[in-house]
Every structure is written in structure tokens, then in C-alpha cells.
Amino acid sequence: MINPPASFRWTRRIVLALLAVFTLVPVGVMVSSSLKPLQDVQGPFRWIPSTLTVRPYFDIWKTVPLGKYFINSIIVAGGATVCSVLIAILAAYGVSRYRFRGRRLFTVTVLSTQMFPGILFLLPLFLIFVNIGNSTGVALYGSRGGLILTYLTFSLPFSIWMLVGYFDSIPRDLDEAALVDGCGPVRALVQIIVPAAVPGIVAVAVYAFMTAWGEVLFASVMTNDETRTLAVGLQGYATLNDVYWNQVMAASLVVSVPVVAGFLLLQRYLVAGLTAGAVK
């Protein structure tokens, strides 16, 4: 915009301020309520705690086995992220550097799996996992491995798409020179492409981690008491006869910190990745 008049600047201030309130009020409620004593959240709502207390942050671990859920979520989201990034790097390298029959079909197929509702393959996948377990003894249903397998495919399409954009922006001469020097294609990938694409890979990893950390539908069906993740575990507070809302808010805050911190630190890369995709 060039030379915006004062009226535009004022509209802008008001609109952005209102939006900031709408966006931040829930976050504020989360923070302030997590520091309230129990009686504050059992009566009418109050903006400011009557007294500040950090007790909820200690109690959350006892009310439900939050520690166990936390470890499960870390294993599942971490596992899904590592596998998804590795697989996406290989696939994106193939799509970006080679022209082959079915290249377009692959991209379209992979991206189109993204659009279908989770509920559509939840039921069959549930049955497939149960039946694989019954016939081969490989327990996918209820296991963290089954969940890792499922989640990594959720972030895979977008990760591949974003990495292809990144790899395309790395000059071909770099890895072709390595190939001419007698480097194998895998070494060219590991030694030339991957180091040059670190920002893109980091962004993709954050996206994959967020996807797995936040998924609810499959977690609610595919886990049992031992493998329950935070997505389902957090509901444990709400099903108690008396909901300790201060604890719920404290727990919500604690489970949000890892992903929010990662996202805010790395959002620049995500924007860059999206821009690379949007140009195409």
C-alpha cells in the first residue's frame, strides 16, 4: 500500500486491536485460570485470581496420569516426525531431481489423500489393524507403533510438497557437480541437498510434530489405557464428577508449550515454505 490516508490507518488500528482481543482472550483465560485456587473457578467467572497459586501445576500430575500421557505423546509425535521427515526427504528428492513416468500422478495422488475425511478411513483402518493383530500377532491396534504409522502419513503429503519447493530452489549445478565427481545420488542428497535445505526440513519437522501432537480422532479410537496420548488424556479431567477447571487450564498450558514454542520460533520458515509452494 502506498500513502494510506489517516482514515485507513485508524481503521487498521481498531480492526487489528479487536482481532488481537478475540485471539488472545482464550489464551489469557488459560493462563489466569491456571493460577487460580479452586473456589475461583467454581463460582462466577473472575478475570483476576483472588490469590495467585501454582498448586494446579502440581496437582495436574496426580488427578490423571498426565506424565504417562506426556511420554506417550512425545514418543508418538517424535517417532512420527522423524519417520515422516526422512521419507519426505527421499520422495521430494525423487520428485525434484528426476523426470520419470508417473511423477505427476504420484504428486496428485499423495496430495489428494489429504482431502479425504479422517472418519472415512478410521473405521476400515481400525478393522485392518485389529485383523492384522489377530492373524499375525503384530499388535498395531492400541500400540504406539500403529499410531506413529498413521500420523506420519497425515503430515507426509504437505511435507513432500513443501520440500519439493525447497529442493527446486537449490541450484541443480551443486548436486550435479557432485554426481559428476563420482558421488552416488544418495551421497549427493545427504552431503549437498540436505545441508542446503535445513530451514525447509526444520519447518516440515515442526509441522509434522504439531500434526501428530494435536490429533484427536484416531487417538481416541486407536489407543488404550497404556498408550493414551495427551489428546485423549486431557479429556480425563472433564469426565470427573467435579471438573477442576484450574487444573484443566494448567494442563492445557503445559501440553501447549512444546508445540507453541517450536512454532513461534520457526514460523518464518513455514511462511517461506508456503510462499515457495504458492509461487508454483
Partner: peptide, 21 residues
């Protein structure tokens, strides 16, 4: 960064806060 918070928060943590509100 503030505007992106709702997108960054895990859906269950954010929505459970709304259900409290």
C-alpha cells in the same frame, strides 16, 4: 505471532479452554 497462536495451540487444549469459557 499473537495472531498465529490459535493455529499453533494443540486443538484439544484450545477448544477445552473455549468450553470453559
Amino acid at each position: 505471532a499473537a495472531f498465529l497462536l490459535p493455529y499453533a495451540l494443540p486443538v484439544y487444549a484450545a477448544v477445552i479452554t473455549w468450553s470453559f469459557m
